[in-house]
Design a protein around this nucleic acid. Sequence first.
DNA 1: ACAAAAGTGTTTTCTATACACCCATGG
DNA 2: CCATGGGTGTATAGAAAACACTTTTGT
Lengths: 225, 225
Amino acid sequence: METQSVRITVDAVVFGYENGHISVLLIKRKYEPFKDKWAIPGGFVLNNESLEEAVERELQEETGIKINYLEQLYTFGEPTRDPRGRVVSIAYFGLVRPNAFKIYASTDAADVQWFNIDELPELSFDHKEILEIAIQRLQGKITYEPIGFELLDKKFPFSDLERLYSTLLSRDIDRRNFRKKIINLNVLDELDEKVSKGSGRPANLFQFNQKRYFQHKTEGIIFEI
Amino acid sequence: METQSVRITVDAVVFGYENGHISVLLIKRKYEPFKDKWAIPGGFVLNNESLEEAVERELQEETGIKINYLEQLYTFGEPTRDPRGRVVSIAYFGLVRPNAFKIYASTDAADVQWFNIDELPELSFDHKEILEIAIQRLQGKITYEPIGFELLDKKFPFSDLERLYSTLLSRDIDRRNFRKKIINLNVLDELDEKVSKGSGRPANLFQFNQKRYFQHKTEGIIFEI
DNA sequence: ACAAAAGTGTTTTCTATACACCCATGG
DNA sequence: CCATGGGTGTATAGAAAACACTTTTGT
């Protein structure tokens, strides 16, 4: 067998949601290859850390962000995907709340920025493909797992949730039916707080009840939009 | 940064279906570690092959099987999962048709065998965990992607499909409703051939029309059981 | 008082489910 | 002629979709 000389990286596609559009977190690369090009944050896995630890470390180092939800996305291993040699990358998929939008370019990146997923720059390596797969996963997953809440503030008005789903699924949503459906899932707590958006009637705040969700899940009752 | 010394393996969880039960293909390991223990087939990725190529090569070398459907499952990277050192494994998920049940232990394995997924032996490494994830994926996936057909002969009587789903979902299925549902999906061609199972009325044979399925898929019509 | 967003029920349509008898063949 | 598995339709119940007016606040 030929001797292996493979290196492992992790990459993280991190999505955020703010004023009606989905954004993805990208860094401007500080070093070659693809110096000064935009890329998905990530980097080499150290010897004694798990893949998840590596993702969280790299995100911290490059962007200073605190991730809210993380799952493995897909592993990319084409022999020629990195000009430096064989690099297998395990891509992750992350979601953050809006207050994570305060980001800073840290030591390992020349710049960090949120990009609307409809206005993406040219990307390094095979990162365009990775991002496309991540977007597909996001759109697919919100319909059968309650991960949408991870993109909103802990307490949110119903209209935020509705707009989020409408944006993600890129179609109109009937407000009454959507509300009925979500309420019937019985995973939201209605709070005794209201919030006003400047004009119009103030909205009641809701909170996702994860414990109740897992309870339903073990009972075989599934989340579905 | 610490120097990396990581090796990459691929592992393949291959499922088959025959006379009413789901089987998984395992090999008996020829070498240490876990010599003479059962394991999921797999092995190290060579320098210039893609991950998929590696899976197919290893399956050929260890079991002589021809895979029919293959998709990436999950990547396992815990630093201590392999006693030989850091080994990251990209696990795949495969399906084969019944005629693939003629297998042989090839050069790299001491033995190869199909195991009913309800009667599994003790497994090497973290392969038990991998297998559990694969079984979950199989059960989940057949309800929204037409991969069940990949486990049957190209031409099959409807009752085979019905029994397959009934087995996989481990619940009874109403024959009439199931048939209606599948026929309405409009992805099966009814052939002018019949097959007899010894006793009873001979059954008409059907064939999955992949082209038609992809056509529907691009039109947004989804497969769902 | 008006503009802007929040909140709320009912009717209709479609889809899922439950259910039982006849048919074709082999022995 | 009987045992075995294959093939088929209808009625009911439940879920999804369509649809518009009232309420609360800020200006």
